[in-house]
Design a protein around this nucleic acid. Structure first.
Length: 685
DNA sequence: GCACTGACCGTTTTT
DNA sequence: CGGTCAGTGC
């Protein structure tokens, strides 16, 4: 096994005890090192169950599970244990399910996803009578997120607040947290925070949880935030067998609280740590690595390293400039069409990477027009669809009767005569009595002072839910999901809301997908209860995610963030413009933010194995208005022309034009249509 | 309580 | 441009 490895990789695999920092550049066989290391630990007699590997995405976890399973072979008879390989969030869910009562939470807590958080934020703002002009739900969540990242509690937030906005946000935070508590729920950040708190305040629990493992590995270490770091430290402090793997040049989650500082100062926190550098890149050809290396040296704070190409030859990256985003999409879609049609390249070998989620639209349209199969990874998830959220709200309510967000969402869906006035009254009563909303509804009867229709509606809701609760633990999750859809007559609700047959079908398909998701989940986790299904959905542990999407033979469309950890023979990195990459929001702030954008660009470049194409548009439409754009500074940097601002004109190796010449704004003259490409394109579309 | 209408506003990136 | 939300009439 070790023969497949070069000396530094071998060192990373065989240094089994003590802290170890593996600084692994892109494409240097990082995954292989981690999996081999796990296999070697087991071979050396470490109990599989005593190994914990933490990843950032479920996709990475699944992949690592599969690879290690393949490596350690079919386990010996009777040996059921496997290394624990999971994301931070699922790890925390598992710990909290067992331990959260120590923090005064109910044992059965709900997990609120982004959508739930938004509803909570909205009602918190309504309660304190803050209009959207002053503070929007998103803004509030942004503040709350920042505070939680730093471990700031609502109380302290109020003290720390300086600006008016911060004061408002602080009191919103208090309401928000209170609402979470009465709903018996935690949000994403709480999963980490509660675990941290648990370890901090309950030494015996920390010791017991830590004792479950003798070796801890963390992948993508550059993306850990403060909480995650402290959780890991709490788990590894006893045995100090902590191996972290990461690349500071690929740290792209600073906005979410990740601190590159963790990887930069690992040696300080773990002084006896061994450091291994992996700089031999097996993924990309030399010319691709040249541009990547040239770009990344513009960042100041980093562990200096240069990727060396293990592969020889390769073509230079292409740079394409277009008149507008439609031209960009049309040309690239056409090129992909030709590539895949000739049979030399499979659709799955190609990726189109972009900075923002508004960019793929044009590409989708053009790919569809040419019948090129594609998958849009991420973006508006199927789980964010209205119907799907409704179904999940019923399900959540079946499991957690205190879940207020879910209750409010479906209290009158389908319509059962409960209007705003009734809801308001119930809420007031709940607040007055200090009870969860559900408790009030539980006691509603004919003598309650409510409109008769509302009383009838509430009773029917109560009965339906009770009926379904009776099925818990008796029937499969799939059966329960079907039952929910049936009992609530959701089919008719869809038909009522969408008179158009086409819409109806589309919406109903989404509903059926929930049943499929339940069936798939059951296939992976036999006999898992409904609560586990809901947890997994909330923590993004979904079957139909990235992994499965990418298995299809289709061109992948995704953001640069989603692309981390993946590789493709052909990569199109589109929208190489100032304002987009680097994004305008990062330009307003300090230089650190531009550095992160540069790392993002670096991640994009290093996804490419064989052919890398960069593209940009001279004009881009946003909200119906056309806007002239300037080539990204990163283009100049990576082409080695950073000191030559006139390079804009000579930069394009190949210039393609959109269908008809458009007048260019004065001063933005760029050489175009020097090639025959635009004539070639005239006949199309 | 419910359906329809126009004003408004926004878009980084996501576990 | 397109989705969301508040206000109006039934």
């Amino acid at each position: 096994m070790l023969n497949d490895l070069n000396p530094p990789q071998r060192k990373a695999v065989t240094t089994l005890s003590g802290p170890l920092l593996v600084l692994a550049g892109a494409g240097t066989g990082k995954t292989r090192v981690v999996t081999y290391r796990i296999a070697r630990l087991i071979r050396n007699g470490v109990r599989p169950g005593a190994i914990l590997a933490v990843t950032f995405t479920n996709k990475a976890a699944t992949e690592m599970q599969q690879r290690t399973a393949a490596l350690i072979g079919r386990r010996k008879r009777g040996e059921k244990e496997r290394p624990e390989i999971s994301t931070f969030h699922s790890l925390c869910v598992r710990i909290l399910r067992r331990r959260i009562t120590a923090l005064g939470y109910p044992a059965k807590f709900a997990i609120y996803d982004r959508g739930d958080q938004e509803s909570l934020a909205r009602s918190a703002l309504r309660e304190i009578k803050v209009s959207g002009a002053m503070l929007k739900p998103r803004d509030l969540l942004f503040f709350i997120g920042n505070w939680k990242n730093k471990g700031v509690r609502p109380q302290q937030a109020a003290e720390l607040a300086i600006s008016d906005k911060e004061h408002l946000a602080a009191s919103g935070y208090r309401r928000y947290q209170k609402a979470l508590q009465t709903a018996g729920a935690v949000d994403f950040d709480d999963l980490l925070l509660c675990t941290e708190e648990l370890f901090e305040n309950h030494t015996e629990i920390r010791r017991e949880e830590a004792a479950r493992f003798s070796h801890v590995l963390v992948d993508e270490y550059q993306d850990t935030n403060g909480s995650q770091y402290r959780i890991i430290r709490a788990l590894a402090l006893g045995h100090r067998n902590l191996c972290v793997v990461g690349d500071d040049d690929q740290s792209i989650y600073g906005w979410r609280g990740a601190e590159v500082a963790h990887i930069l100062r690992f040696k300080r926190d773990w002084p006896e740590a061994t450091v291994v550098r992996l700089e031999d890149n097996y993924r990309s050809t030399g010319p691709i690595l040249d541009v990547a290396n040239r770009l990344i040296v513009f960042n100041k704070e980093r562990h200096p390293k240069v990727l060396r190409a293990a592969r020889v030859g390769g073509e230079s990256p292409h740079v394409l400039q277009f008149a507008d985003e439609e031209g960009e999409a049309r040309f690239i879609a056409e090129e992909i069409h030709k590539l895949t049609h000739s049979g030399s390249v499979q659709p799955r070998d190609i990726a189109i990477l972009f900075r923002t989620n508004e960019q793929p639209r044009a590409f989708e349209q053009e790919l569809r027009r040419r019948n090129v199969p594609y998958v849009l990874v991420g973006g508006m998830s199927f789980f964010d669809r209205k119907e799907v959220r409704d179904i999940f709200s019923y399900l959540k309510l079946v499991v957690h009767s205190t879940d207020e967000v879910a209750l409010l969402r479906i209290i009158n869906v389908p319509q059962r005569g409960i209007g705003q006035a009734t809801v308001k009254r119930l809420m007031e009563q709940a607040v007055a009595e200090g009870q969860p909303l559900w408790e009030i509804i539980r006691h509603v009867n004919a003598s309650t002072n409510l409109p008769p229709a509302a009383t009838r509606g509430l009773c029917s809701l109560r009965e339906t839910l009770a009926g379904i609760r009776g099925l818990l633990d008796k029937r499969s999750v799939e059966h329960i999901v079907r039952e929910v859809i049936d009992q609530f007559d959701y089919r008719q609700e869809v038909e009522r809301q969408y008179p158009n047959a086409n819409d109806q079908e589309l919406r109903w398909n989404a509903v059926e997908e929930v049943v499929n998701a339940a069936a798939q989940h059951a296939a992976r986790h036999a006999e898992a209860p409904l609560a586990k299904f809901l947890d997994d959905i909330a923590t993004n542990d979904r079957d139909d995610d990235k992994e499965n999407q990418l298995k299809q033979n289709a061109v992948a469309l995704m953001t640069l963030h989603s692309a981390k950890g993946l590789e493709f023979p052909h990569v199109y990195l589109v929208g190489m413009e100032e304002g987009l990459l680097p994004h305008r929001r990062s330009l307003a702030e300090d230089e650190h933010q531009v550095d992160e954008e540069r790392r993002l660009c670096y991640v994009g470049l290093t996804r490419a194995k064989d052919v890398l194409t960069l593209s940009l548009a001279q004009n881009r439409r946003k909200w119906g208005k056309t806007h002239t754009s300037i080539p990204s500074r990163f283009l100049f940097e990576l082409l080695g022309k950073a000191d030559n601002p006139n390079a804009a004109r000579t930069m394009a190796h190949q210039v393609a034009a959109s269908k008809s010449p458009k007048p260019h704004p004065p001063g933005e003259r760029t050489g175009r249509s020097t090639s025959s490409s635009h004539r070639r394109r005239q006949g199309k579309s």
